[in-house]
Design a protein around this nucleic acid. Structure first.
Lengths: 124, 124
DNA sequence: ATAAAAATGATAATGATTACTATTGTTGAA
DNA sequence: TTCAACAATAGTAATCATTATCATTTTTAT
């Protein structure tokens, strides 16, 4: 994978933002710095970075894919009103992959936990 | 919601099948009994039934939505090779909604857990 | 400096899902 | 039972997120 300014900026902006943006949202953010960037470039780079394990994809609702730069084990909470995705600490459900193996014999490569509800901001 | 033969058959076939089918797969199954059914009807009914809480949607990969007639608390395992979705018992990660509240103060209306890996069938 | 490989921007294509519309089916009351 | 109001359907067009294509530009190793 060769260097590209586009990829560097995409990754930096994703890292700066705790909002777990979609490709579309990230496209808008990147365009502030790089007005001629193509939406295809954003998708291409996000998929490449995810493929390399440098970022993660989050399948949050039934529609758009969100992206997460945080590689540590953790989970997510999506607000069904504002659609924001929040991080949830690993401690909430630790060792579930081990529990899966004990209970079912299945080996999981990944465990995605997604809570759905209304965030504190939208409650008020 | 008025009765319709289409909805009855769609729901019955979903209940008969443990495979967590997509709308597309279900469309094929329903057409065996009701050759003139429309794909739009399948989508419309699945969404209505999900809206009413009579079935559940599973956001499994980044692409298609799967449907689940099992309303009991349980989780899922998707095989990254054959794409089949298997049920995982609730015991593997019990009380995670309570754990979420204790750790974060957030109230979750739902908790979706999706393990990814290779199923025993595809391993051999 | 340069040639090969990789990445880009622009846009067309894809594929899942939803919207639209004319028609048909269901329902509850007269 | 009949009938009007309304819900649901089949068929198909439209939408929208994502991916593919391709000519051009950038990166990189020699």
């Amino acid at each position: 994978m060769n260097y590209s300014k586009q990829r560097e900026i995409i990754l930096r902006i994703l890292k700066e933002n705790p909002i777990h943006p979609t490709a579309d949202t990230l496209y808008d953010l990147v365009r502030d710095e790089l007005p001629n960037v193509s939406l295809a470039t954003v998708y291409r780079n996000l998929n490449q970075l995810a493929e390399l394990g440098m970022i993660r994809k989050i399948c949050a609702l039934d529609d758009k894919v969100h992206f997460d730069h945080n590689l540590e084990s953790h989970y997510h909470f999506i607000c069904i009103k504002c659609k924001k995705v929040y991080d949830v600490p690993y401690d909430v459900a630790p060792n579930i992959t081990e529990a899966l193996r004990e209970h079912t014999g299945l080996d999981a490569l990944a465990a995605d936990v997604l809570f759905k509800g209304i965030c504190n901001h939208c409650k008020h």
